[in-house]
């Protein structure tokens, strides 16, 4: 045992201080003295068995307790890491947003400054026409790239934002169906069929717009994994203790085992630049944890990927609640 929490360690149930030892030894000795060798042996064996059984039981309980506390501290460390990363991301995003604003304004001013050249073009100058076309093109490209940057900074800020759920009684099946309906048209266009398997759900309180964001993210990932078509299975079901589970499974290429523990990291992406920023799952997991639930991924070789959202009956973000206006987007 590496630490003091073991079976025989200072705090274990069979530690020297424990009253179990004298009790069992005394019992065996008493039996041997009073009842002759055979019943004494039997009693001693019985005592030994009880001892063995008790130690197995407590070992199991201890292992479970240790595993649980491990998981808990892991989650804690993870959420602290995420919070630190979030602050960094927000800092960078803000710094980048300012120059982006200036670039946008300058590009717009350039467009305005072209008016005299436009006049020259109207007067028939071929030089002006060529010059204009080139410049407009350039300005257009600048704007497109600026938009791309601000899309990224927006996502960074969204990731950095504290999840402050506002909980309302919600019909989760309907919420999921709304998002499925939104995705379905584009799914059909890429030969992807969505199969709905909605179970009867207890009414839960959760944050509807945050949950919509998560479900939509998962559906979007599934769609992107199925570029060449396939199926998406969307399942909802009641789980133990009034919890509910939402699963989005696809028949795409799946996730390599080596990636499974990385996909929830911010900025982890296997997609081409411009196609993915690697923030979707990081944001989604933060949201679900903020709602008091879990978001997990599974992937079997060649059997696609499955993501499961588990939510408690009543949403509760631990320590992530903020006072007052908890309800803004992060577009700034």
């Amino acid at each position: 045992m590496p630490d003091g929490g073991g079976l025989l360690g200072p705090s274990g149930p069979l530690a020297a201080r424990s009253p179990v030892w004298p009790l069992l030894l005394g019992l065996a000795a008493l039996a041997a003295a009073t009842a002759g060798p055979w019943p004494g042996l039997i009693l001693a064996l019985a005592a030994g068995f009880v001892l063995w059984w008790a130690s197995r039981r407590s070992a199991g309980a201890l292992r479970r307790a240790r595993e649980e506390s491990c998981e808990l501290s892991e989650q804690l460390i993870q959420s602290q890491k995420m919070a630190a990363l979030g602050e960094l991301a927000a800092g960078i995003a803000h710094e980048i947003n300012n120059p982006l604003g200036i670039i946008t304004q300058e590009a717009e001013l350039l467009g305005l400054a072209l008016e005299p050249v436009e006049a020259a073009q109207r007067d028939g100058s071929p030089l002006a026409a060529a010059f204009l076309a080139e410049l407009r093109d350039g300005i257009g490209e600048i704007m497109r790239q600026v938009n791309r940057c601000s899309d990224i900074t927006h996502k960074m800020l969204n990731f950095a934002r504290k999840v402050a759920p506002v909980c309302q009684p919600s019909d989760v099946n309907r919420l999921v169906e709304d998002m499925v309906a939104l995705v379905e048209r584009e799914a059909t266009k890429q030969d992807t069929r969505i199969v709905r398997m909605y179970g009867e759900l207890p009414r839960v309180t959760t944050d509807p717009p945050l949950l919509r964001q998560v479900v939509l993210n998962l559906l979007n990932n599934a769609m992107q994994a199925l570029e060449r078509g396939g199926m998406i299975f969307v399942t909802t079901r009641a789980a133990e203790d009034g919890q509910i589970a939402i699963e989005v499974r696809d028949t795409g290429p799946g996730i390599p085992a080596a990636h499974l523990d990385k996909i929830f990291n911010p900025f982890f992406t296997t997609k081409a630049p411009g196609m993915g920023t690697g923030l979707g799952l990081a944001i989604s997991q933060r949201i679900v944890v903020g709602l008091g639930g879990t978001l997990t991924a599974q992937s079997l070789p060649d059997a696609g990927a499955a993501f499961v959202i588990r939510l408690p009956a009543t949403c509760g973000g631990e320590g992530e609640r903020r006072h007052g206006a908890a309800d803004q987007g992060t577009g700034h």
Binding site: H154, K155, N158, D178, M179, A181, L182, V183, R185, E186, P208, P209, R212, Q213, L216, N217, L219, N220, M223, I283, A325, D327, Q328, G329, T330, G331
Partner: peptide
């Protein structure tokens, strides 16, 4: 920030849905 916004659209796209929800829309209705 506390005013709630429901987005309404004739041709909903996944992209605009994701963007809308991340900017704090309450709902997205087709």
């Amino acid at each position: 920030p506390t005013v709630q916004v429901i987005l309404l659209t004739g041709h909903g796209s996944v992209k605009s849905g994701i963007e809308g929800m991340s900017y704090g829309a309450y709902d997205y209705v087709l």
